[in-house]
């Protein structure tokens, strides 16, 4: 959280342009303030006795812009810590995982594209595996086991115990069950199946890992 504490003046030697944190941060705030003012441009500020909807946000946006400008200006007086270049892999995969979760949890229609709702049983494993690759240490097999074990746990925890209304199973899967099964029963059976597969994968994985170790010996 406190970059400047952990890395005093941590200039990245390989970064092509040396921009100070203050300059970049200040300019971002000025830009945000400008966007806010633009969005508020057609609203009425009113009077003190009958405040209009734009009065408070407009005052705040101007304040934010001024403070942002001051922060940016301060970078010219003393060279603060330098902005390091942003890593791409981590943030982009984490955000992608969130987007995938949002897109698959329930039916989605965006203009011409429309997706059926897949429910948690699909959304959770997808986002776990995608987001797992945000770090270079990721191992596919491990993530698959995690996904297969965590998803049914969440299904039972949120859907069955806490009774929250979260879509769990896709319609196509529910149609596979015999007529008259309750949703809870379908949920429990699917969860149990996933857990079994996870356990199978885990133990076979453990055995193959020990086999590997033995082979090395």
């Amino acid at each position: 959280m406190r970059e400047h504490d952990t890395q005093p003046g941590g200039a990245a030697p390989d970064s092509p342009v040396r921009v100070s944190q203050n300059l970049a941060g200040g300019l971002i705030l000025v830009a945000l303030a400008a966007i806010a003012l633009w969005l508020l441009s057609d609203l009425n500020a009113g009077t003190l006795g009958a405040m209009g909807s734009a009065l408070m946000p407009r005052v705040l946006a101007v304040g934010l812009g001024l403070l942002g400008a001051l922060v940016a200006a301060s970078s010219f007086f003393h060279q603060g810590p330098v902005l390091e270049h942003l890593p791409l892999r981590g943030p982009s995969l984490v955000i992608l995982a969130i987007v995938i979760f949002a897109a698959t949890i329930r039916p989605l229609s965006l203009g011409s594209v429309s997706l059926p709702g897949f429910g948690l049983i699909v959304a959770a494993p997808l986002s776990i595996i995608i987001c797992g690759f945000a770090t270079r240490e990721a191992r596919l097999r491990e993530l698959v086991v995690l996904a297969l074990a965590l998803t049914p746990t969440c299904m039972v925890l949120f859907g069955d115990l806490l009774n929250l209304t979260i879509p769990m199973l896709p319609d196509a899967l529910m149609d596979l069950f015999p007529e008259g099964w309750s949703q809870k029963a379908m949920l429990r059976v699917s969860a149990a199946t996933m857990l079994a597969v996870a356990a199978l994968l885990f133990f076979s994985g453990a055995r193959s890992a020990t086999d590997d170790a033995k082979a090395k010996d």
Partner: peptide
């Protein structure tokens, strides 16, 4: 109580196909 009721509802549904 809630989950017991749900189990009952599920049972009822099984009978009424």
């Amino acid at each position: 109580i809630l989950s017991r009721r749900m189990a009952l509802a599920g049972l009822g549904a099984l009978v009424a196909c």
